[in-house]
Amino acid sequence: MISLKDIWKSFGDNQVLKGISLEVERGKILVIIGPSGSGKSTLLRSINHLETIDRGEIWVDGVQVNAPLKGRKFEKHINRVRQEMGMVFQHFNLFPHMTVMENITMAPMLLKKIPREKADARARGLLEKVDLADKMNCYPVQLSGGQKQRVAIARALAMEPKVMLFDEVTSALDPELIGEVNKVMKRLAAEHMTMLIVTHEMRFAAEVADHVIFMADGVIIEEGPPEEIFSNPTHERTRRFLFEVFKS
């Protein structure tokens, strides 16, 4: 489903991604862990082209995301490609001038020309799925962090994406609000959504992942099924990282 081939990226002199390659099969969940500055967020964001890469190929469901098109053609291409992917951000990025309902229905109505009644009905269904049916007409400013993030997930799901990308979605939440978001993500996982998750939460990762990648300094240090990585890591770097994380 997702295929990254030899990705290189630098910010000025700083080489952030050094030849990363990975594959995610349809319906599987890949979790990327690693220290800050390892490049994991940059990698995730390059999949839907929020970051450009210097070298390499990004393929999602048989389409090359970073296709060698120019100008308007590329614009149209990337807009279409992004509609097939959903992204959830660390800082939610809900649209403050729209209600929860409008946040969710705006893109389907505008881009897929779905009529209002149908979009509203779908939105209501999604809000129930994330346990927020009663917040339909609220504005983001009235919601807690956990509620905002669940709306953000619903907003991304409204476009019926093939792939969901999660960029440290619980890092900005108060601890007691993390559980409700994790619950929703587990539900998605059970429905076999293809998910790529960057996270600091090892326990959650261990529960949900089909495959885990540990990244540091722009390279993949180690990868494998969660049982291997979390209980029995081979590399010293991985061991050190997990030790520090589980200490806290």
Binding site: N79, F89, L110
Partner: peptide, 8 residues
Amino acid sequence: EASRSLGL
């Protein structure tokens, strides 16, 4: 970013 990632 949120808007573009939805495909707008």
